[in-house]
């Protein structure tokens, strides 16, 4: 560092290295200072307006009273206002009337898709594709009827069909014969269908009785579809469905969605959605 400043009048700090490298005392550029001051002013204004400083048990709330939750609720409200145009019409209309209205049923399909995903798809599969032991909703084979109102009843009250276990009343050979007849889709071809009173539940033509929820045995659509379908039919005949007397019985229960679980309108929406999946009557 030089004792004598060889570069007078150029506003240097007097720090000079290698005879000519020196530090000047120029101000930072104006644009930089504007940016700097604007930044700290912004921070102060922001922390006054918005929730910011942590305090011992709570935090400073900000003079605008903004909260993330409040913003979410506002957004939700404005969303509901848009939906209200359709939602307000739904409670007063029957499922059939809604389905007759293109615009309304379009809305219901979009809206119920979420409900279906939340409540139904876990068992019945996305799009009602069904799962082992859970019925397909996209076909037109219905145990309890496939009109929108029948579907509403099924969702509201749940369903629990019963088939007696026949391990005691039928011999293995008889079960084999009946199972093979069902497998062919012609249950009445076996005389046992009449003599062993299968018709009492499945109807004299074997097409099921929807009031009882008994299966149609003629259409090749199985309630308990499995890889080895013949074995599955034999198992069902042997152990029944929901028969408390047989510990190996098949469990098949559709839970109740009415009451506190889903509102009537939501159930109506779901019924329309399910009705339109591919097999509504």
């Amino acid at each position: 560092m030089s004792e004598k400043n060889p570069f007078p009048n150029e506003n240097n700090s007097g720090h000079i290295w290698d005879n000519d490298l020196r530090e000047l005392l120029n101000d930072p550029p104006t644009w930089w200072r504007i940016g700097f001051h604007a930044s700290w002013i912004l921070v102060i204004v922001y922390t006054i307006l918005y929730p910011s400083w942590p305090m011992l048990t709570t935090h400073y709330k900000g003079v605008m009273g903004w909260t993330a939750m409040g913003e979410y609720k506002e957004d939700l409200q404005s969303l509901e206002q848009i939906r209200a145009k359709y939602e307000d019409q739904l409670p007063g209309k029957s499922a059939a009337a809604i389905m007759a209205d293109d615009e309304l049923s379009n809305y219901v399909m979009k809206s119920a898709k979420v409900l279906f995903g939340d409540n139904c798809a876990a068992c019945h599969g996305g799009g009602g594709a069904g799962n082992p032991s859970y019925p397909i909703l996209a076909d037109d084979d219905w145990l309890y009827g496939g009109t929108a109102n029948e579907i509403i009843t099924s969702i509201t009250n749940g369903r629990k069909g019963v088939m007696t276990a026949h391990s005691k009343s039928l011999s293995t050979a008889e079960i084999d014969e009946l199972a093979n007849a069902v497998m062919k889709g012609e249950p009445t071809s076996s005389p046992l269908f009449m003599t062993k009173a299968c018709f009492a539940c499945h109807g004299p033509d074997g097409k099921g009785i929807s009031a009882m929820g008994s299966a149609n045995l003629t259409d090749g659509i199985y309630r308990f579809a499995e890889e080895d379908q013949l074995a599955s039919i034999k198992y069902t005949i042997t152990h029944g469905v929901n028969d408390a007397s047989d510990p190996a019985t098949r469990n098949a229960e559709m839970p109740t969605f009415g009451g506190s679980k889903l509102s009537e309108t939501d159930i109506k929406k779901l019924a329309i959605y399910v009705h339109k999946l591919g097999g509504g009557k």
């Binding site: 799009g127 594709a129 076909d139 084979d141 149609n216 259409d219 090749g220 659509i221 097999g279």
Partner: peptide, 18 residues
Amino acid sequence: HERQPLFVLQSDGSIQNK
């Protein structure tokens, strides 16, 4: 083409695609 389900069997013995 609807992927879920890819197809369904209907009670009249026909295959339905959505």
